[in-house]
Design a binder for these strands. Sequence first.
DNA 1: TTGAAAGCGCTAACAC
DNA 2: GTGTTAGCGCTTTCAA
Lengths: 339, 339
Amino acid sequence: MATLGDVAARAGVSISAVSRVLSDAPDSRVSAATKQRILDAASALNYRPNFAGRALKSARTQVVGLVVPDITNALFTELMHGAEDEAAERGYTVLLGRSDDVRPGGEVIARLIGEGRVDGMALQVGDGVPPAGLRDLLSTQAPIVLVNSAIPGQAGSVTLDDHRGTLLATEHLLGLGHERIAFANGLPRSFTAKRRRTGYKLALATAGVRVPAGYETRVGYTVDNGRTALRQLMALDPRPTGIVVANVNAAVGLLGEARRLGIRVPDDLSIVTVHDSWTAENTWPPLTAVKMQFYAVGRTAVRSVIRRIETGETSDEVVTDPPPELIIRESTAPPPSAT
Amino acid sequence: MATLGDVAARAGVSISAVSRVLSDAPDSRVSAATKQRILDAASALNYRPNFAGRALKSARTQVVGLVVPDITNALFTELMHGAEDEAAERGYTVLLGRSDDVRPGGEVIARLIGEGRVDGMALQVGDGVPPAGLRDLLSTQAPIVLVNSAIPGQAGSVTLDDHRGTLLATEHLLGLGHERIAFANGLPRSFTAKRRRTGYKLALATAGVRVPAGYETRVGYTVDNGRTALRQLMALDPRPTGIVVANVNAAVGLLGEARRLGIRVPDDLSIVTVHDSWTAENTWPPLTAVKMQFYAVGRTAVRSVIRRIETGETSDEVVTDPPPELIIRESTAPPPSAT
DNA sequence: TTGAAAGCGCTAACAC
DNA sequence: GTGTTAGCGCTTTCAA
């Protein structure tokens, strides 16, 4: 690999002149002719600035870490794309990490930041980590921004308008005439589960609808969790006629389990989910969903990390633009009795 | 962040002594007592070796790049996990990249390698890039290993036993009594499509079964491609009673389109796919699939890259262990006429 | 057993 | 306009 020195030798100038030209400093203080010679030499040698050399000198890597619990998840993929696009526009690169072992004491963050591999990070922890458990992780003053959870005052955060997501979903079922509307939620300690709950509750309260006890499950966000949730809800008396699901993966599970039990969707039971993804389009029936704007979350998170890195400012942001959007497919219909 | 100098000062020794101890050189040539003082100082200061400093000096990053066309794809996720596990065991880190713009002239590879961000890479290009187009990308002597494609002699490669995958899938349908078996394949120029084709052909030939013209589509591996493929195949006369699909995402599309057209699976039509993933379990009906060992591919690819980096050896490997495995679910049954 | 010192590629303050 | 130089944190050779 060619170095600055190689380019300088070829162009017959000093290393610093080359550095000034190639790192396009605002004022390179070099004559047009020299500049051209340098550029020619650089491209002839196919010069690229060495990452380590630059990082060592400037104490900046221009890399931000993005750590999510599970890359498999289509939602995080969308988030990642947003993060990458924003980073690219600002001359940063995204380094992806898994937060599998981001528990208090987990190593990922400490390593990435401590070894100077990244300048800052956007961190979404799994459902299993209660927000309180994050405190010591964040005790360092490193530029970390939480994604889809928040500890006000401790670190910056970027979250979705979860409340509005479940509100829209619940209103959709109410609008179809449902009253026995259940809610398949995430784990109680989960930050998003708490917020999604309020939207569901508010919609019911506003409509003056009361639901029987046990109409909220709190199993989790995986496909299997969804299967369990459906069994729990279908064991109730009276059975719900509609279910709002707090996560699309869980919704896929609910749908599969309904099928297994011979419950027809949407004839016997309507299912609407929060989150949309390509999987939701390809279930049978295709899932009615409230699309949450994960792409925007990714962009916002990276913007926030970079601001934190460059100016030190911290902020807690909620992504409301674009707003959550109801996409009606075929898993919802009026309740059976309403014929 | 604490540096070697900080640790040295605290322990009252020289920087080089600290370096020797902390980079656990086989022979640190340091007395037990000094060593202990150094270790204490390091942990008191929470010392971590600076990545850039080390990389600059040693001209090694201990990072391998993994570039895949689409991180959304569940298959690549599995591959990634394999890659990460292997890397971790060998003291390397995986840096993930997207190959969206890996066409001849694409920048990703040149950047990662040229800027010294990675020591080598495993590269899977999208279906759209014909193997020939890769040549110039690989003209550099950089330690690059191709994944799921190969240009013998040009770079190392790691591939799946694609042939055996479609062979098993086709034999499964034959075993159920199907004879009118179609094949929904990828694009003709795709490396894997060519290999998958041979398995299908061989199984039919061995069984002495001949199929009508038009029984192979070559649309591609996406969900939408799958929908198109199904329409093409169902327009044929006679219609196939079974379809072997070369990719699970396409299979999801075929299934959805069959549903839309009122074709019952598996009663009217059996569908078996190559590849397995969690999506295959959650379609309706759940897809019978031949599981291909992507996790093993990831491990093998990283092992191969590291060998290339450290010893310069190149190899072309086919992952046959564990072998492809047929997982029978509910999308396949005997053909309608065979009652 | 220990330390001094050179140098990896780069930037930036300073001198000419 | 252009060049010299110090130094970022680390490893490693060589000397003590």
